[in-house]
Amino acid sequence: MYPLIAAASGSSVLVARALEFFTFKYDFARDALIASILVGALCGVVGVFLVLRGLSLLGDAAGHATLPGLAVAFILTGGLAAPALLLGALTSAFLASVTVGVLSRGARSRPDASIGIVLSVFFGAGTVLLTYIQRTATTSYAGLDSMLLGNVAGISSGQLLSIVVAAIVLIGGVALTYRHLLVSTFDSVFAASIGVRTRLIHYALLATLSVTIVVSVQAVGVVLVSAMLITPASAALFLSSRLERVLAFAGLIGAVSGALGAFVSYLGEGVATGPAIVLAASSFFLVCMIFGPRNGLARRWFNQRSRSTRQEA
């Protein structure tokens, strides 16, 4: 009944299970581990740009919005074929992020409300489609359920491949176009004045975001994928004042959180991977917020103290 606690109570058991998990003793565990690490790293890197552009919660909307796409793909193909599901999720996630932009530009609209509207209405549509599938499906739809909160153990080789490809292409793409991403994120007006195609970059980033979310949902789930975009990036911002390093730290924090979360959900049967990974990332955030060299609480407190002692002297 309490698998987590039971597992944790015998520390030797824990070590043994950690060994069998991290040394690839079982194939499914190896796949799960690789997938979670790559998803964490990818989300971390992409998330930095999202957070810096003030689009943190756009990831939340796009994440929830994959649900109707997944459901439509399932209905059309009648199964859990990875390419169809990816394409469906991708389409609806991209559509959602574009819709947020369109709604935010209308008269009398508020950008924050636009995100909430798109998130909930897309998710509502997904809910409706899920009940339709539950009623009519002849094949198993259990795989679809696991995408809500993530179940990395159930990852297929096709999904793993798409994660690997996406991670290589997108992280490589970020590295190659790093300068343009930096300048258009930092100062878009200036970027446009030196001929950087800021609109193109914006939409490329939305597409990157959609791909990232779509390959991540099997591991972390549509509901919590936004946390993996926001939390490691925000933690990394406490660690350095140079963007290159922030990106590296965010990727690292994401990857380690992915590994830890996959392990925890491997230990405790019934613990969805998404919440476990997110909780690991949130713990890292807390640590970085307290001890981070840039704006960290401990450093601030120390600075304040040394300032007041100097004033006294």
């Binding site: 300048v183 930092f186 140079r242």
Partner: peptide, 11 residues
């Protein structure tokens, strides 16, 4: 934003 003076002038 995580950029230094040098980063900005490089732009």
């Amino acid at each position: 934003f995580p950029v230094t003076v040098l980063d900005v002038v490089n732009q």
